[in-house]
């Protein structure tokens, strides 16, 4: 609001400070005044006397910013830099004395792009302009988001590590009982055939009693190494008790091949294991079953049967492998090991 009549009497310098993005033209579209920031953006050396459309272009719809076009479009104008259309403005044009126009501009939401492309500084904005505050907020927000993103990544990593620990036997690095149950459930669910091997170490208690628990732990880690080496990456090797292990062989339905693998494991585990110069002697008894033996395989049942075959091996004198089989004529499905050696 102002008193009618007298001129407010602002000189060009005042205009430049108040509105660094202004542009004034005469009735024929010749530029008579340009704010310093708009001048910097346009990159042109001679602006006074140029046509408005050499500096600005209309958007929505795109058209040259002739003085006639500017007059025709009422209200807020959508504009861009004629020389760099990526820099966009919102503008307001008002008629000035003698049929000319006075435009004042501000950056729209594309301000970050304009600032980047033209290296604008704090001095390029009017002191009353909130644009710098907005840039500050954009930057503060992205710093906060970066921190949140990295926190999320660390939490995700910690979660994966915790899940891995929940499925791993800490002493040997093999999988644990929980991982075994999940794996068998998954294979049965997919209807995939698999072989199951239950391993129990022979004479392990004697190693513990004679050489101590540290020696026992060392032996268990050595056993784990052998089991890893004698199985494929897709197989699962789990420690399910003090000196008990279970191997799962997805896709393997060949009993003879499983028996060969078992014999190789027994042979390797029967070699003395060195612990600080002392030889620890163990061997292994193994029971084997195949999912193909069952109309509807169940994890509990298969583990029970492999265990039964294992104890048949133990009874038969240790260091051997037995294949699970139903004893003839036993309708209850009671079990006996069959020595296939």
């Amino acid at each position: 609001m102002r008193a009618p009549g007298p001129d407010i009497g602002l000189g060009p310098e005042a205009l430049d400070r108040l509105m660094p993005l202004h542009l004034a033209c005469d009735a024929r579209g010749h530029v008579v005044s340009v704010g310093p920031t708009l001048a910097k953006l346009s990159g042109r050396r001679r602006l006074i006397g140029a046509q408005v459309q050499e500096i600005l272009a209309l958007r929505r719809p795109a058209a040259p910013a002739t003085v006639e076009a500017l007059r025709l479009r009422a209200g807020t104008l959508a504009l861009a830099l004629a020389t760099d259309p990526a820099v966009t403005f919102r503008g307001l044009a008002v008629p000035s004395a003698g049929g000319g126009l006075f435009l004042n501009l501000s950056f729209g939401i594309g301000v970050t792009e304009a600032v980047r492309r033209h290296s604008l500084t704090v001095e390029d904005f009017a002191a009353t302009d909130l644009t710098v505050e907005m840039l500050y907020l954009v930057e503060a927000k992205s710093a906060v988001m970066d921190e949140l993103r990295s926190l999320n990544q660390r939490l995700q990593g910690a979660r994966e590590a915790a899940e891995e620990r929940a499925l791993t036997d800490q002493l040997t690095g093999l999988r644990n009982r929980r991982a075994l149950d999940l794996q068998m459930k998954a294979l049965i669910g997919q209807g995939m055939v698999f072989g199951l091997m239950h391993i129990d170490l022979d004479f392990f208690k004697q190693v513990n009693d004679t050489h101590g628990h540290a020696a026992g732990d060392h032996v268990l880690r050595e056993v784990a190494r052998v089991l890893r080496e004698e199985t494929r990456a897709s197989d699962l090797a789990a420690r399910v008790g003090g000196d008990e292990f279970v191997l799962v062989f997805p896709g393997l339905a060949d009993a003879a091949r499983l028996v060969r693998i078992a014999r190789r494991i027994i042979a390797r585990l029967s070699r003395p294991i060195d612990y600080e110069g002392r030889a620890c002697r163990i061997s292994a008894s193994i029971g084997v079953t195949l999912s193909a033996y069952y109309d509807r395989p169940e994890a509990e049942r298969m583990l029970f049967d492999a265990d039964a075959a294992l104890y048949a091996s133990k009874r038969a004198g240790r260091a051997q492998v037995q294949l699970f089989t139903r004893s003839d004529g036993d309708t209850d499905g009671a079990l006996a090991g069959r020595d296939i050696a």
């Binding site: 970050t112 600032v115 980047r116 290296s119 604008l120 500084t121 704090v122 710098v132 840039l135 930057e139 992205s142």
Partner: peptide, 8 residues
């Protein structure tokens, strides 16, 4: 130097 744009 301080540019308003972080890239600069």
């Amino acid at each position: 130097r301080f540019h308003l744009s972080a890239d600069l």
